[in-house]
């Protein structure tokens, strides 16, 4: 299944050059409706210089659900995650093959501008990375670079995002204080709120709880659970319990290859691959 390149190019020519191809309504060929509600990864390989980090991975992520990628360190799951919003572009010497089809466009294509793409596919990082600005300005940042200048509009969206990330009650009285003064868990929820503010459709989470304590982790997990009503969440985690708790689908990666991808219940209770079972039961090696 390939993208109708020509149709896409034609559509792009007719619109604002900076417009995200996803905003172009594509006439969907018959039989692809199902695919429209999916992100399909088709034969993706990623190379760092000569080293191959991802080996020809294909899978389909359904929308409005939580999909977890698990696997030992260095198995390439974070690398794959960073393909979805083209963050790998920022790494010199990183090369990607294959395609990720979302809304009828190939995310990995040179034609797609990663900048507007990232406003639709947000990302939360392993280590909370709030900007050294006030809490308010952290959330407002994404809105302002998008060209929003109206204070009341920004304030309203800031509040909504913070409520959505279950952080509003904790910070509403100190919006002008530096975000660096928040606890780790609060910082991470702030980063989630910051991502939500620009109204993405997909949220990528790269081990969002790995630097947090169990209580903060619990809060983030609750949040993720609720996010799936409105967003497609893809989460990379080391913590198998976490994957089991929050996700509907789980992919197990090993040495850059996708070993197994199935419903989470299936993966954890009756894995089809021996490698998966050994990893899940902790008998690895």
């Amino acid at each position: 299944m390939t993208v109708p390149e020509t149709a896409m190019n034609r559509a792009r020519e007719e619109t604002d050059p900076g417009m995200l191809p996803s905003q172009v309504r594509m006439p969907s060929p018959p039989g692809t409706e199902r695919r429209d509600s999916m992100i399909s990864i088709e034969g993706v390989s990623v190379f760092y210089g000569a080293k191959q980090a991802i080996r020809h991975v294909s899978l389909e992520v359904p929308e409005r659900s939580v999909t977890a990628f698990i696997g030992p360190s260095g198995c390439g799951k974070s690398t794959l995650l960073r393909c979805f919003n083209r963050m790998n572009d920022e790494i010199p010497g990183c090369r990607t093959e294959g395609s990720i089809i979302w809304k009828g466009m190939d995310i990995l294509s040179r034609e797609v501008d990663p900048v507007p793409l990232r406003r639709k596919i947000g990302m939360v990082f392993q280590k909370p990375n709030p900007f050294p600005k006030s809490i308010h300005d952290n959330i407002a940042y994404g809105l302002r670079i998008g060209g929003m200048r109206d204070r009341s509009e920004i304030d309203a969206l800031v509040e909504r995002s913070l409520r959505h990330a279950a952080l509003w009650d904790e910070v509403k009285d100190r919006m002008d204080e530096s975000a660096m003064g928040l606890s780790g868990g609060q910082q991470q929820r702030l980063c989630i709120a910051r991502t939500l503010a620009v109204e993405p459709e997909v949220i990528l989470m790269d081990e969002p709880c790995s630097s947090l304590d169990p209580i903060a982790t619990g809060k983030i997990e609750d949040l993720i659970y609720h996010l799936k009503r409105d967003y497609t969440v893809i989460i990379v985690t080391h913590n198998m319990q976490q994957a089991a708790r929050v996700s509907g689908l789980t992919g197990f990666f090993y040495l850059g290859e996708l070993i197994e991808f199935d419903r989470t219940k299936q993966v954890f209770e009756a894995p089809r691959q021996e490698l998966t079972e050994r990893y899940i039961t902790g008998r690895f090696g």
Partner: peptide, 26 residues
């Protein structure tokens, strides 16, 4: 730190926006 640039890029900022609104203030 690079992770601030990454955070900004992930929000859909151009490199120029990241440079002037995150890197310079930081």
């Amino acid at each position: 730190p690079q992770h601030l640039r990454d955070g900004s890029a992930a929000l859909g900022a151009t490199r120029w926006e990241t440079a002037t609104r995150v890197v310079m203030p930081s």
